[in-house]
Design a protein around this nucleic acid. Structure first.
Lengths: 135, 135
DNA sequence: CATACTGTATTAGTGCTCTAGTACAGTAGG
DNA sequence: CCTACTGTACTAGAGCACTAATACAGTATG
């Protein structure tokens, strides 16, 4: 994963969504340790404080548990919570798009066509408006 | 339309998308005048400069033409351009959502289910539209 | 020309994000 | 105990995006 500093979405939020996705996908499992604050900061080339803020939000969301001196661990219900959150995020994106379509008087059929096209597109191509980036 | 100042999307960009949608929908037709910078500012309760910036971007995108002392007008190809742009915006939202789903290992069927649910939801403004009822 | 409307430019201020440095607190292991 | 690793807290500052106020410039009309 690489952070996109040009996005209007703050870096710490990009990280939150990224890590949340990894937990939801089962890359990090319950009770498994995530990279340390400093380690992750090195890895993503951002300031440790930025990571800390992301981890704070993840803890507030109940996805992880942090323990001083030990590290950061996926919480027991982390995976299911993350999955729920991610599904909400997906729903939100879809509703946003559909809303746009309705506003410009596109019919449902047309909107669905666009969706099918989106399903076919393999992966997000590099975009100036991109909100998240890949590893 | 109500602007959402709490969004991480800048107000001027919200306005750009909004006006673009109106043009695409045919609410404003070719050569028709849009509300003046100051008029729109009053209407949306934002600073005229914010409107100006939105109009600047719309002009750069070729959707409108501005003339000192006269006003702002929908360009000849404004509608078709706006439709194209809007469809791209929709596609982008969909791809974003789908991408999220893929990252969390959701199958296509599951993703489509979420989409259907989104299609059913009548309207979901990500912002409280009725947050303040000023004059 | 005077007025009143248009859009434009410039400058300033506010708030948020991010970075940086430093210090503190808990745990593990030699 | 000492060291080295964990997370945490705090302060200060730079940079940037957004907003705001004000002054400038062009057009129409009487």
């Amino acid at each position: 994963m690489a952070v996109n500093p040009d996005s209007h979405i703050p870096i710490y939020e990009q990280i939150v969504e990224h890590v949340c996705g990894l937990i939801a996908a089962g890359v990090y499992r319950a009770d498994e340790a995530l990279p340390s604050v400093r380690g992750m900061a090195l890895q993503l080339r951002v300031n440790p404080n930025t990571i800390q803020r992301a981890y704070q939000e993840l803890e507030r969301g109940g996805f992880i548990r942090t323990r001083k001196g030990l590290g950061v661990f996926v919480s027991t219900q982390g995976a299911t919570s993350a999955q729920k959150k991610t599904e909400n995020a997906i729903l939100e994106r879809f509703v946003e798009g559909i809303d746009l379509g309705r506003k410009t008087k596109l019919g449902p059929a047309r909107i669905q066509t666009v969706f099918r096209r989106a399903m076919r597109s393999p992966r997000r191509p590099a975009d100036p408006n991109d909100k998240r980036t890949e590893t």
